[in-house]
Design a protein around this nucleic acid. Structure first.
Lengths: 133, 133
DNA sequence: CGGTATCCCGGCCGATACTG
DNA sequence: CAGTATCGGCCGGGATACCG
């Protein structure tokens, strides 16, 4: 009864992404997912409106952006501020918790961006040794 | 000719995950993907064999672990050490670059794990205001 | 042990159309 | 502008079987 699957329910055990049923796994996927990370990154510079975000995040569709924003809002990382004007105006911004998460995420992103030359070189070496089979 | 899609090819521009065609986007997805992050995290404590990894990462299939390890090896983040013995023994370990990436990734993971109570509380508030429609 | 090959299903995600 | 609704393809990824 102390299998790894139960860690999420046991209040004495810490949250652990390595356990399949731990809710932290889901939240981490929202944060690091294909669009989640880019959305948080874009919002780090300040609040943005829906279509501003869409333009900022090259390649995202309306549907995925909407879905991503809902997930992040639900997790308490993004705040949605709607003004009942006409035309409607909705601003999205990071919550304090979201800002803390995003800072740690951006540290990772910027590091990877800065080492892409190394990564690309490793790729060529890897592909080379297999001799284009 | 200076559209956002071309940043990857222009050597003067830095790598930028926000651009659709930038290779850093792909590598970041390997690192933060469903299994990539967990694999790097598991290897951070030391080198592990294939089936040790499989047991450590709750829920991963042989196929996905194999696929994930290949991608990370190709990106130069994981080193594969095979011994031609019988039975075969293969050890996986982080490269220096992989270790640097993983440290930044773990900072993020541990922060999220530590704030899951806040996230779960936000979820209940969010779901509550919509009144189970 | 340490994988690869194959099958196949669910759901991710893009495209399009529509609403307030 | 700020989304929701719906459809459909594609592929991520699990299950199984097989190989060195």
């Amino acid at each position: 009864m102390t299998s790894t699957q139960e860690r999420a329910e046991d209040p004495d055990l810490p949250y652990n992404v390595f356990a399949k049923a731990c809710p932290s796994r889901g939240t981490l996927e929202h944060v690091t997912g294909r669009w989640g990370g880019l959305t948080l990154g874009a919002l780090h510079e300040g609040s943005l409106r829906f279509n501003e975000l869409r333009r900022r995040i090259d390649g995202v569709s309306e549907k995925m952006l909407s879905q991503t924003l809902h997930a992040l809002e639900r997790d308490g990382l993004v705040h949605r501020e709607a003004q009942p004007s006409n035309p409607p105006r909705v601003d999205y911004e990071l919550t304090p918790l979201g800002r803390e998460v995003t800072e740690r995420l951006l540290t990772l992103i910027h590091f990877v961006e800065g080492r892409m030359d190394d990564v690309l070189a490793a790729r060529e070496r890897y592909d080379g040794t297999r001799g284009t089979l």
